[in-house]
Amino acid sequence: MPLSDGGSQISGYLIERRHKGGKWIRVNRTPCKDMKYTVLGLFEGNEYEFRVFAENIAGYSSPSPTSDLCKPCRPITAPGPPVNPKVKDYSKDTAYLVWTKPNKDGGSPILGYTVEMKKADTEDWQKVNLDDFIKHSAYTVKGLEEGERRTSSGSSPPT
């Protein structure tokens, strides 16, 4: 809110944007009532700055100070799950797992994978790779007990 309402209640706000150093363009057709507004129609990779005017019965205020530069980018979401996990080979105390990378990376490169396993008759999953993310879509699980049935789950962490 402005420090002064000019003697009349603020009825709304007008928002303008511009490309870095360019010409100011009005963003909203009618003044918004809230002190927040989602600006649509921006292009990824361009840099924008914004300013706001307050409106009351007498008209519009001078513009606010210019905002910091904003560079829109695609929103990043969690990736999809790894595809087609398989036990490719095994011995009495190891299992060699392989999988295919997720169909969707969430808008950011996959940083790595986490493998979890559980005994077949329990519900408790335990992380297998404790030190770091697995960088490739294969991993050898070590320290298995001969005769124990286990289930594994490969997942990709948030990026």
Score class of each variant (00 low, 15 high):
W125K: 09
E47S: 14
A78W: 03
Q126S: 13
R29G: 05
V115I: 15
L14R: 13
T94D: 02
N103M: 02
K104V: 00
V27S: 01
K101A: 03
S67D: 08
K36Q: 09
K101Q: 02
K104C: 00
L69D: 09
T30V: 14
I10D: 04
P63D: 10
R17N: 11
I10T: 12
S108I: 00
G80K: 03
P81W: 06
T94E: 08
T38Q: 04
R51V: 05
S61F: 12
I110R: 01
L97S: 05
V98H: 07
M117S: 12
Y37H: 01
R26C: 01
S8W: 11
K33S: 07
Y13C: 04
E49L: 07
S91K: 05
T122F: 03
T66P: 00
T77E: 09
V52Q: 01
D68Y: 12
W99P: 07
E47C: 09
P109Y: 02
E47M: 10
N28R: 03
I15H: 02
D93S: 08
C32W: 01
T38E: 06
R26L: 07
Q9G: 06
P79H: 05
P31H: 07
D105N: 15
D105E: 14
E44F: 14
P85H: 12
K33V: 02
T30K: 15
